[in-house]
């Protein structure tokens, strides 16, 4: 049960802060901070830095991703920015341009 959903067709310009899961199907510009899981679904676009728990990307992200847990770039994902997390997976078919920092 995702608690916060930004639906397709909706654009948020500003700062999104959440203590729960965030699912992005629409567009977020600005900043995205979540204590829990962040999921950028197919068709979703984030032009912002993301900080959160586990981050899953199947859409587009332009900005840095910082996770306290793991980052999964799924098939179809397009990410431009640096990724910092303890565990990172990049699926076949994901586009990625940026640095990876696995802070071991």
């Amino acid at each position: 049960m995702a608690s916060t959903v930004i639906g397709a067709g909706i654009t948020i310009e500003g700062e999104v802060t959440s203590d729960e899961d965030v699912v992005v199907q629409g567009t977020v510009r600005g900043k995205l901070v979540a204590k829990d899981a962040v999921s950028v679904e197919q068709g979703g676009a984030v032009e912002a830095d993301i900080a959160g728990g586990p981050v899953a990307v199947a859409g587009t992200v332009t900005g840095n991703i910082t996770s306290s847990d793991r980052v999964d770039l799924q098939n179809g994902a397009k990410v431009i920015g640096n990724v910092k997390a303890t565990r990172i997976t990049i699926a076949d078919g994901a586009q990625f341009k940026g640095n990876v920092d696995m802070d071991v």
């Binding site: 995702a2 608690s3 916060t4 959903v5 067709g9 909706i10 654009t11 310009e13 700062e15 567009t27």
Partner: peptide, 27 residues
């Protein structure tokens, strides 16, 4: 349901929310 947006209880948005679709604000 496809276009529906939910701002959860523990979420906070500062800025502009715009676009097509429904919006439920619990935060």
């Amino acid at each position: 349901m496809a276009n529906s947006t939910v701002i959860g209880r523990a979420s906070f948005i500062r800025g502009r929310v715009s676009g097509d679709g429904d919006l439920e604000i619990a935060g």
